[in-house]
Simulated assay, not measured.
Amino acid sequence: MKLTKIQRAELKQKFGGHCAYCGELLGDKWHADHLIAVVRDIETGKPSKPENDVIENLVPACTACNHNKRSMSLEAWRDLLAHYRDVQVIRDCSQVRHLVRFGLVKFIQEPIVFYFEKMGIPQAILEAERHG
């Protein structure tokens, strides 16, 4: 959906100008992300779930979070982030393994909580996302 400048400005302030996912303060380059994925057809660009292409389903996201989340559900993305933390980074990066051995990097084994969850997004949106 195409946002007007006013809608975009209002969306950016939905969480005080912060990314809904990581909490980073947003600059000029940020994305309006569908909390519950729209999933667009690669060739036509048309959404396969047009009912999700509404302003109430949009959150402000930094470019890095939006690109990493792609069209995943929140729970699938949460699992992927935990996989990065628990397996992939240490397995795939010898520099990180070395820093861990020296005690310079520590991974916190806590649940992944998105910024919007800390800020109290309406539970109805989360329930709709969980039940697709």
Rank of each mutant, 00 (worst) to 15 (best):
M1I: 06
M1V: 06
K2C: 05
L3N: 03
K5W: 07
K5Q: 13
I6A: 14
R8D: 00
E10I: 09
Q13D: 02
K14P: 14
Y21M: 05
Y21P: 11
G23N: 01
E24H: 06
L25C: 07
L25F: 09
L26F: 13
L26C: 10
L26W: 12
L26M: 10
G27F: 11
W30L: 04
W30P: 07
H31F: 08
A32C: 01
A32L: 01
D33V: 08
H34N: 02
L35P: 10
A37N: 05
A37P: 15
R40M: 05
R40S: 06
E43T: 09
K46E: 06
P47H: 02
S48I: 10
P50H: 09
N57E: 03
P60S: 05
C62G: 01
T63Y: 11
A64N: 05
N68H: 07
N68Q: 08
S71L: 01
L74W: 11
L74C: 10
W77N: 02
R78I: 03
L81M: 10
A82W: 14
H83N: 12
H83C: 10
R85G: 07
V89C: 10
I90Y: 10
D92Q: 13
C93F: 13
R101F: 04
F102A: 08
G103P: 00
K106W: 08
K106Y: 08
F107T: 00
F107Q: 01
I108T: 03
Q109V: 07
Q109W: 07
I112K: 02
F114I: 03
Y115F: 04
Y115P: 01
E117Y: 11
E117I: 08
G120M: 00
G120T: 00
I121W: 14
P122Q: 08
Q123C: 04
Q123M: 09
I125Q: 12
E129D: 14
E129Q: 14
R130Q: 14
G132R: 15
